[in-house]
Amino acid sequence: MLKISNLTKRFGGLAAVNNVSVEFPANQVNAIIGPNGAGKSTFFNLVAGAMPPSEGKIEYQGMDITGMAPDRIARLGVARTFQTTMLFDQSTVLDNLIVGHRLRTQSRLWDVIINSKRLRDEEKKCRSRAAEVLDFVGLSHIGHRYIADISQEERKRVAFALAMATDPELVLLDEPAGGINPEETENLADLIRKMVKHGITVCLIEHKMDMIMSLADKIMVLDHGEKIAEGTPEQIKNDPVVIEAYLGSEQDVEA
């Protein structure tokens, strides 16, 4: 699904991501972990096209997407969420989701002016897609509520739904369980499993180790921008290099 070779990103003299090569197979949960400042977010940004890599190659479904603009990558079927959920507070949940399917539509200014059939059809399509993904994340009952009035966990789910509305095949989740309680984390993990069950490949960054260990099929560990390990949760748990890296920093493995 995603094949990364020798990926490097330097800021000034500092390499935030250094010579990382990894493959993430389709239809499973792939996790990226590592201490703070290990380069996880930069890695995501590179894959999503938010910044160009200094060196290396990113292939998605056999296609070279290195240095491609993020909106083009999104249209190829790569969706993402952000650490801080960005939604439009002053409108309803459903209204927030409609734009998610925009990338699969064609209408332009002229369609708006003449209110063309194409525009009307596409708007209908976007609306029903929004309702579908809302249902998928289990929030149809709050579709009419204002974003400002819903809980943190619900916001996370809406962000998932927004990503789903783009009809993705690969979803990048940046700390999906950040700032929510253990029970909600478990529910969110279920939702991620459900996404995989529907044929979506998931890549995620997370700090909550117990969630990762039970959820991930494959884990890559970054430290100081370099890949120090990859494998199944079992392998990672017992990898001395990983334990060393975590003990060396202030991060608690069992956190």
């Binding site: 960005m86 939604l87 734009v99």
Partner: peptide
């Protein structure tokens, strides 16, 4: 409106900024 929320979000939704 998506662009107003955030450039990054809009781009991640496949919107040509």
């Amino acid at each position: 409106l998506a662009i107003r929320i955030s450039d990054d979000l809009a781009q991640s939704l496949g919107i040509n900024l």
